[in-house]
């Protein structure tokens, strides 16, 4: 028994301070990134990582309730289309269009959440897979509004300052810090404790007074609204919105980010977003073999680190202790 207690006490303390240091370091690096690397390619890459961090972190929030959603990119699309259309057709400013888009994603989540969050495991995967596909069909087939598979071109920049790659990078970074910060705060509060409780032992949590379904729906709604931020910003970044950016492949991508980074912790989602966004870009030189290399690397990582890349930290700590 003594060893169990000792181990728990030892591992919690330093982990917190190390994490804080890591976060501070990462924030500094990200803020200075464009100054250090004046390279266009690296700036574009950093922008994409910031955008995907939003999607991956918000999906992580849903995963923490015990549900792996394969419709996450679909919700991004809802927000993206609503924001772009309200800006281009209705002439709303970006500052109003962005929250409106997120509100739309949240509304759709609220409408289907109470139905689909009652199923778990592979059935939830299937149901969300189908729902994501339905959303993509709407984006593709509702040509009069969405522009069909061609999408909508010439999406204006959010504001003149954000028209340059550097300006947009800071916008994306700011949004990522805000959204990831919200997720981190949720998970670190009593809300996070309750989310973990209902995932680990739903019945027990319910008998302690937790309205489980209501909580799952609330988390789902918030996460889909946050994912909407990526959807909207991405449309402005690409200056284009079309169904392919919100397809099932994109949803799968977000799931893989969480799996490969590590599903137990928010940091895993962020590591996954970095890894999965950077890797294909860095493999661009090998066009022919890109997918093959990518696949092989994924398999090697998953075989070596079944708990995700974040496991490296635990392994290193174990090594340090063994010495």
């Amino acid at each position: 028994m003594a060893s169990v207690i000792g181990a728990a006490a030892r591992s919690t303390r330093p982990r917190i301070s190390a994490l804080h240091g890591l976060v501070a370091g990462a924030a500094l690096l990200l803020a200075l990134w464009p100054l250090v690397f004046g390279n266009k390619f690296l700036l574009a890459l950093a922008t994409l990582v910031a955008l995907y961090a939003i999607g991956a972190a918000s999906l992580h929030l849903i995963i923490r309730t015990g549900h792996v959603s394969f419709a996450h990119a679909g919700f991004m699309g809802v927000a993206g289309y609503v924001a772009v259309l309200s800006q281009m057709r209705l002439g709303l400013p970006f500052a109003a269009a962005l929250p409106l888009g997120c509100l739309a994603a949240a509304t759709v989540a609220l409408a289907i959440g109470p139905l689909i969050l009652r199923v778990t495991g592979k059935y939830f995967v299937l149901v969300t897979f189908l729902f994501g596909e339905i959303l993509r069909l709407v984006f593709t087939e509702w040509t009069a509004v969405t522009g069909g598979s061609n999408g909508i071109f010439d999406v204006p920049p959010p504001a003149p300052v954000f028209a340059t790659p550097l300006g947009f990078y800071y916008l994306a970074l700011g949004a990522a810090v805000l959204c990831v910060g919200i997720v981190a705060r949720i998970l670190g509060s009593e809300i996070g404790r309750t989310i973990d409780a209902l995932r680990e032992a739903e019945r027990l949590a319910e008998c302690s007074g937790v309205p489980v379904i209501r909580w799952k729906v609330a988390v789902f709604v918030v996460a889909c609204a946050l994912a909407g931020v990526q959807g909207v910003l991405q449309a402005h970044y690409l200056r284009l919105i079309d169904p392919t950016t919100f397809s099932i492949v994109e949803s799968l991508n977000l799931v893989v980010m969480n799996v490969i980074g590590g599903m137990q912790r928010l940091a895993g989602a962020l590591i996954g977003a970095l890894f999965l966004t950077a890797l294909p870009e860095l493999l661009r030189g090998y066009v022919e073999m890109q997918r093959v290399f990518f696949g092989i690397i994924l398999i090697i990582v998953m075989a070596a680190l079944p708990g995700g890349i974040i496991e490296i930290g635990a392994r290193l700590r174990a090594l340090g202790k063994a010495r």
Partner: peptide, 13 residues
């Protein structure tokens, strides 16, 4: 034990 105390602990969203 803290999780059991959800009703007393949770102060609202």
């Amino acid at each position: 034990a803290l999780r059991g105390a959800f009703l007393g602990l949770y102060p609202g969203v």
